[in-house]
């Protein structure tokens, strides 16, 4: 586990490219209980003005924090995690010209609070160049 005393604001925490498919959306819907059909049916998604099926914002949020968990070594060290949902992640069907979606995730140390024993990690997540999470921040409890 990283030590607070050895960290500086701006340090890289990690990065990942996550490829999401329609099957991943179904799996997340089943695991989370969020069965909104805009994450499964192009027809329903288009009927509410979307270009097609999009990923659950909460799936993007859940996947993005992985780089932080892998860095700190304990999922329970993430004591606070919040984000705004600023963009959509369209996920093409398996037989579409562009199947699935690529989510680019990176994270850096945004702030250190030695008194509280925590580091704030700022997460960036983009899809097709669009930021899909805004002010995504995880507060991680770390040893001194």
């Amino acid at each position: 586990m990283p030590k607070l005393s050895e960290l500086s604001v701006g340090d890289a925490v990690g990065s990942a490219t996550v490829h999401l498919t329609r099957a991943d959306l179904v799996r997340y819907a089943d695991a989370s209980g969020d069965q909104n059909p805009i994450h499964r049916s192009d027809e329903v998604a288009r009927s509410v003005g979307l270009s097609g099926v999009i990923a659950h914002g909460m799936l993007t949020m859940g996947v993005a924090v992985r780089v932080v968990v892998d860095w700190c070594g304990d999922p329970a060290a993430v004591v606070d995690y919040g984000t705004r949902f600023t963009g959509q992640v369209p996920v093409g069907a398996d037989d579409a010209p562009e199947p699935g979606a690529d989510l680019e995730v990176s994270a850096v140390v945004g702030a250190l609070d030695v008194e509280a024993g925590t580091a704030r990690v700022d997460i960036t997540a983009t899809c097709g160049g669009t930021r899909v999470l805004g002010r995504a921040r995880a507060v991680v409890r770390l040893p001194a």
């Binding site: 996550v18 997340y28 089943d30 695991a31 989370s32 799936l59 859940g62 996947v63 992985r66 999922p75």
Partner: peptide, 26 residues
């Protein structure tokens, strides 16, 4: 375990979500 697998982003699931011994060691 199901939620962790669904949000693993294609990587391995962190063992603290699936292995009680690892979780206890933490």
């Amino acid at each position: 375990a199901a939620f962790a697998a669904a949000t693993a982003g294609g990587g391995p699931v962190h063992p603290a979500h699936t292995d009680p011994e690892v979780a206890r060691s933490l």
